[in-house]
Design a protein around this nucleic acid. Structure first.
Lengths: 151, 151
DNA sequence: CTGGTTATGTTGCATATGCACCTTTTTATG
DNA sequence: CATAAAAAGGTGCATATGCAACATAACCAG
């Protein structure tokens, strides 16, 4: 094995600049904040994402569309929706020619669940924004747009 | 239930600014990039984080210390290390008075595994930095420092 | 040295995530 | 309309993650 540089240098480069590591740590730290606030309500961050998106869209949507909007894999969305449907937060949307439904909508209970999380969400949000600075949300938006652009 | 604002506004506020949602999406998108490059080598991002950190530290460390450095829960680190020890990438460090070891070090095989990932890591890293801009790593560092500060 | 306190490691439970496959549904084409 | 192609949904497998609760080890005071 020929290495032009010792292992230390490679490792330093990795730890000093690795985006995978940084984003992972950021996710662990921020997600914990929200989770600690939302968990008592029996709500997770991805579940809140789905309920918010469904409310905002306001019509039956295909899970694959939702997955695309939230940058999730179809398989992940499939499982997340299963749990939420069991709890009655979402329900099948309009049916197609074959009689089956390929879309979901938020239910009345889903709306109530989302509303019940308002205070908890606000507390977590304020804590994180206070720590990172008010520019953080727009910076993240910028990054997300760029990532989705070259896909 | 008295709401001063309609649900739409609450939801819009959530989706428009929610840090939990943004960080989650960022994690999904970036992690996928690295995962697609590292997976063929049988290496995950958190595993690479542990190997890098162990190499950089260069001495036996307690799992709880490692967990703290990488902003992981002790329980998560415990499980991640189990997998890595099964594969021989890490091994018990020096033993204490009771005969058991409460520390781990990277093994020779762990070093080799980390080295084998160099090219794959570089490709993922370059793709992500190219998309987000060269400022992204330092911005993330800034955020991570702030989050760890008020803990 | 012993007993209590604290740090640390581990396990049960639940959710999230992605890929590789496979199945089903939809859509396009002849 | 029938059939091929494409899109969508869902499962198996593996890892990651956190909290709560418990077990064990280290440490400190008396």
């Amino acid at each position: 094995m020929q290495h032009n540089q010792p292992v230390e240098t490679l490792v330093e480069t990795m730890l000093e600049s690795c985006m995978g590591s940084r984003v992972g740590r950021l996710h662990r730290l921020v997600d914990r904040q929200f989770d600690q606030h939302l968990r008592p309500l029996g709500l997770s961050v991805p579940q809140m994402e789905v309920l918010s998106a469904l409310t905002l869209i306001g019509r039956p949507v295909k899970p694959s569309f939702l997955a695309d909007v939230l940058s999730m894999e179809r398989s992940t969305m499939s499982r997340n929706l299963s749990i939420m449907q069991e709890r009655g937060w979402v329900e099948p949307g309009d049916v197609s020619a074959t009689g089956r439904s390929m879309s979901v909508v938020i239910s009345r209970e889903g709306v109530l669940k989302l509303e019940s999380a308002e205070t908890a969400w606000r507390e977590a949000q304020e804590a994180v924004v206070a720590a990172l600075g008010t520019d953080a949300p727009s910076t993240l938006d910028d990054w997300l747009n760029k990532l989705v652009a070259d896909r």
